[in-house]
Design a protein around this nucleic acid. Structure first.
Lengths: 344, 344
DNA sequence: CTGAAAGCGCTTACAG
DNA sequence: CTGAAAGCGCTTACAG
């Protein structure tokens, strides 16, 4: 192991004291041109690179942030992750990638590591599965923001950026109703966060609004988390067996894609036999056939706003609780467009 | 800002010295049961969390690793990133996400930051665009591994894990030839890394092997990098205008998907009018219609092997140069299966 | 088995 | 304008 070049080495070569080198590098106090030049020259000659760890230890602040995300391979989250990381970097922060797979023990492990590493802030790209973590974390009053969910840390609410998921589901039911669907099924992964709960809530409210709830609340909600396309494929079997259903509203696009696969395997024609729509408008949703009707969320904007909020808090402004809500939009594609309704 | 609880605080409460607390926590030397209990109790009462920064500074080693990746939103890379991060975590390392967008200035910025933060190692998920960085970095003799490319740092080769891309292209041409294609076009993004160069090289070699190279080396290689599906869409126009072509071999799946879109927009039937295949076997390739024939790479395995190699090096074993090569396989799907050839 | 001392590489008052 | 001194929170010999 080669020893690092330190400020001391630079100081010796430049013939000044070590604090003076620090001053030159950080511009903390005035120096004569002569000293400035000598120090810069020594830095260049030695290839000196400052030690961020030592600096952070002394200043009790770092330029690192932890990003908790359930699954970076999922297109929905990778798009958010990219925006978060980019926004942080543009503001001088660097990102620890914490891929939790929705596992409480990993959530705990990561949070613990982040605290040990003195991160300046934590951004959660989903509401954690294990809410008890927020209690543990509260003592460290570390800046936090939650994207795409809402939650509390101890007594305090955590600043959050959400999309109005209740409204999203209403848009979905409204659309399905308008094309003649009356027995709409809700298919979902477990409702382990506010976003999913709201989608469910909005669905139930909308059914009620259209008078569809009497005998017809049909829903398939999985009990545990696993690959979403596979999950959709499994849910698809239950949907296939229920002859009543004329429309499927899946709580995310990957589920919808899995369901479509299963139904297609059974010879069910989409959209003619049954219509289906998803939620999120991931990249793939326009590439599958039939292309998938879905609810689009301003994901990037949401990620950016959340990150900016975190940065504001980290820079020391008042930690006011804040909740931003953004509106989703309906994207109509082939999976809900029956032959008769399609443009020539 | 609340002051952190330190070992000193724990020591005072437990009535022992601060180094003793350190010993208890790290098991560095024997302690009496009584002392052990007192210290543990104090830790619990105060909610003490060790400061990894201070520890790292003293020990001159961290548990962090930098992961350079061009675009986390691209399914190919997000799959690799996930595997890398997971493998690192399982071995006690935490990952800095460095999304470079193939930009040399970002590559430089990230590498610099990683060095400042004393990462224990760097894993590159592609050959960097700016090769000069490897020269700069060589002085810091920091463990590095390169996945999916091959490159040198100063005089030394960097340990790497690659897939045999030359062979992949041969498999592709062999397949296209076997189904009757004779005028095969190569479509690609810029050949900015060894992987892409090898794919191109393998293509040319295979054409030669089958005697297809006389008047028929048709290739469209873009000059700059941008969204791959869009790029494919643009390349698709050139392909459409060249009536000679009867098969397209795209250097990655997203390009192929973009090309298919464009051709479909012009009313060209795939695979009946023209066959097309991609490279990488990304998730989407089986979901598009027609599903895409492609070359599959053991991406996950490649990522895991590379990460394990990095871990070995970081743990201090001999930094032997090593190059692992893995074999790709052909996945035949609908985009190259003409009607007559399809199973009933 | 336990503690006093030195030091990792920096920053930050404070003298001069 | 420059430097001596103290200290961030730890670990690591080394005494006792």
């Amino acid at each position: 192991m080669k020893r690092h070049v330190t400020m001391k080495d630079v100081a010796k070569l430049a013939g000044v004291s070590q604090p003076t080198v620090s001053n030159v590098i950080n511009g903390t106090s005035q120096v004569t041109d002569e000293v400035f030049e000598k120090v810069q020259k020594a830095i260049r000659e030695l290839g000196y690179v400052p030690n961020a760890l030592a600096k952070s230890l002394k200043q009790n602040k770092t330029n690192t942030v932890g990003m908790l995300i359930p699954d970076i391979e999922n297109g929905y989250y990778s798009e958010i992750a990219k925006e978060v990381e980019q926004t942080l970097r543009e503001n001088g922060y660097f990102t620890f990638l914490c891929n939790t797979f929705y596992k409480p023990e990993l959530e705990k492990l990561y949070i613990n590591t982040l605290i040990q590493n003195n991160v300046s802030g934590i951004i959660m790209c989903y509401g954690l599965v294990d809410k008890s973590i927020f209690g543990d974390i509260a003592n460290f009053d570390i800046p936090m923001v939650c994207i795409d969910d809402r939650t509390t840390a101890g007594k305090k609410m955590i600043p959050s950026v959400e999309i109005n998921n209740v409204h999203g589901s209403k848009l979905a039911v409204e659309h399905l109703y308008s094309i003649g669907a009356r027995r709409i099924c809700f298919a979902s992964e477990p409702l382990y966060n506010t976003a999913l709960e709201s989608r469910h809530e909005g669905f139930v409210l909308a059914l009620n609004e259209y008078g569809l709830d009497s005998h017809h609340l049909i829903e398939f909600i999985e009990k545990s988390e696993y690959g979403k396309i596979d999950m959709g494929y499994n849910l698809g079997a239950k949907i296939f067996l229920n002859m009543e259903i004329d429309a499927v509203f899946a709580s995310n696009d990957y589920l919808a894609i899995g369901i479509m696969k299963r139904l297609a395997d059974h010879g069910v024609k989409i959209p003619d036999d049954i219509v289906i729509m998803g939620y999120d408008d991931v990249l793939v949703s326009k590439l599958v056939v039939p292309s998938l009707t879905t609810i689009s969320q301003p994901k990037r904007l949401m990620a950016k706003r959340g990150t900016q909020k975190l940065i504001t808090i980290m820079k020391g402004s008042e930690v006011k609780y804040m909740e931003i809500s953004m509106e989703p939009t309906l994207i109509i594609r082939d999976s809900t467009m029956k032959k008769g309704q399609r443009p020539a």
